[in-house]
Each structure stands twice: as structure tokens, then as C-alpha cells.
Design a protein around this nucleic acid. Sequence first.
DNA 1: CTTGATCCTGTAGCGGCTACAGGATGCACG
DNA 2: CGTGCATCCTGTAGCCGCTACAGGATCAAG
Lengths: 154, 154
Amino acid sequence: MAPITASRALGLPIGELSRLSGVNIETIRYYERIKLLAAPRRTEGGHRLYGRDDVRILAFIRRARELGFNLVEIRALLDLGGPGKASCGDVRKIATRHLHDIRAKMSDLGKLERLLSRTVARCTGKTAPDCPVLDVLDTARTPRPRGRSGIRPS
Amino acid sequence: MAPITASRALGLPIGELSRLSGVNIETIRYYERIKLLAAPRRTEGGHRLYGRDDVRILAFIRRARELGFNLVEIRALLDLGGPGKASCGDVRKIATRHLHDIRAKMSDLGKLERLLSRTVARCTGKTAPDCPVLDVLDTARTPRPRGRSGIRPS
DNA sequence: CTTGATCCTGTAGCGGCTACAGGATGCACG
DNA sequence: CGTGCATCCTGTAGCCGCTACAGGATCAAG
């Protein structure tokens, strides 16, 4: 139930904030726990009460997450855009590095896409003992350097 | 019994297997724990001893990981390519779906790259109160549907 | 006052590893 | 045969960014 008369003296409960910002309730509490978000005031019973600013901040965070910024970067962005009113140059630095990462990732994905689509194209779909996909995977190339390479989830 | 005997004769310790396959020692043990990899025989003292086949399998896994397959998919691929000698069609199905995912991700990254590069380009780098990057992030668009959307790490 | 929606804290789990701690083993060399 | 030390063992906890409970407490409408 959404009380239309919400924001009584600008006191949004967490569910309302969630709806307005597009951020999951559990995630909001998580952000508070890791101190990405300041702890809000509470009702006497202990329920969180947020203001309009919180909606903006959370929406900002959500958008930045959608753009692939991680929480460390977002924390930095929030600090920069915060009370100190730091330089746009610093923000640009973060964004530029991030852009660089994105381009690298796209290039990787591109290579991968070409390899995989070429391989799949060779597939007959029949029950064959020599499957091109498995073949490609089986050609273990460079046992590449000892690495903390980590390989991110797909 | 043909070449199996040969591979049994040489018993690779885990460190050797790691070097040959390019997979981290800890990761190999992890794969064993989650049963992606069969438990190998051991020395009397309890040290793992691997054969040549294990090098192939691990290299296969590593390569598939590099191509962005997740462990569930890899497990399926291993099963398919395994004793049952299943159809190439099944393998193709997995690979095709995966290819689809890759393309979707590339498209997303492309949009993101365009938005971010356009935005960064507008940056003066000066200490300005109105930073284009922060502006873009601040325009919270659709407070999109209640979601288990999750947004993957960058 | 009762209901039931919303909220609270705390903890555990996901994937795919990585990083220890605190020991046991294997093997070359003297 | 002893010694030293590289490698190995198990087990547990941590990383990120959430998500999903359990087991209650609170709030507001009727």
C-alpha cells in the first residue's frame, strides 16, 4: 500500500525510498552498513526516515552502478560532488579511467565473439565425434603466465 | 590398457599440474571441492598425483573460462564431451546461448561507452560547480521496475 | 483493538576464486 | 642417516555487490 499522503514532514520510510529511487530495500540497508549512505534519522520505534536528498543520492548511485562504476568509484564521486565541491577534473579522471576499462572489456568481448561465432558456424549440429566447439576449447594455447588473473563471471 | 598406464607412471604433483595447465593451485583444489574435477589418487603421505589427462581437462576449463563460460556451463560441456560422447548439437546449444549473452553485453557496453565518452568530452577539467559527468549521473531516469536486477561488478 | 503490511537486526549464501594459518610430506644433499 | 627447505596438506575466512531468509517489532487503517 502506497499512502498518497506520504513524506509527512519529508519522512520517507525505506520502502518509499526504494520505490522512488529504484534501489532495493535490502540494498539500501547494505549501503548504509558499508557507509556508502549516511544513517538516517529514525522513528521512535526504530524505523528509518529519509528525506528528499536521499532519493537523489540513491538514484545517483543506481545510475552510476548501471554505468558500471564500482562502489569504490562511486564513493569517490559522491565525495567529490559533495560538500567540498571538488574539481570536475577529478571526476573526469575517474570517468576516463572507467571509460578505458570499458573499452578494454569491449575489445576482449569482441575477440571472443568472433572466435565463438566462427566456431559455432562450423557446427553441423549432428552427433559427431569431433565437435568444433570442444576442439577450440581443447586447443590449450599459451599456458599463460602465473597469474592472479581471476577471470570475471560471464 | 594402453596409454593410461603411461600416464599413471608419471604422477604429477599439483604444482606441476598448475604450471602445465595454467591454473592456480588453489583453484585446482577448489575445482576438486566443487566436484568439477575428479579427486586424483594420492601418495602415501596424502599428496595429490595427477596424470596427463588432468592437464588436458584443466586447460580445457581454463580456456572455457577465458571465453566467459561459467562453471555450470563448463560442467555441462565436460559431461557432453565425456564418456557419453553426446551430440555436438548440445554443445552448440550451450555455445550459442553464450554467444547471445556476449552480444547483449557488448551492446550494453557500447551504449555505455558512447554516453560516457560524450560526457567526458564535455569536461573542461576546471573546478566547476556544474560537472557534466555528475550531471549525467544525477539525471535519474526511469526508477525502473522492482528488480532482482543485480547489476554486475565492473 | 485487531489486522496485516511494513519494518527491524542478524546471519548466511551466491559465484569464482584468493589468501592465509599451522602443520605434514618429499626429496636432494652431505 | 639426518637435515633443510620446497612443496604439499586441510580448513577457514575474505573479496564484491548484493539477495534471502528467520524471527521478531512497529505502524497505520479499519
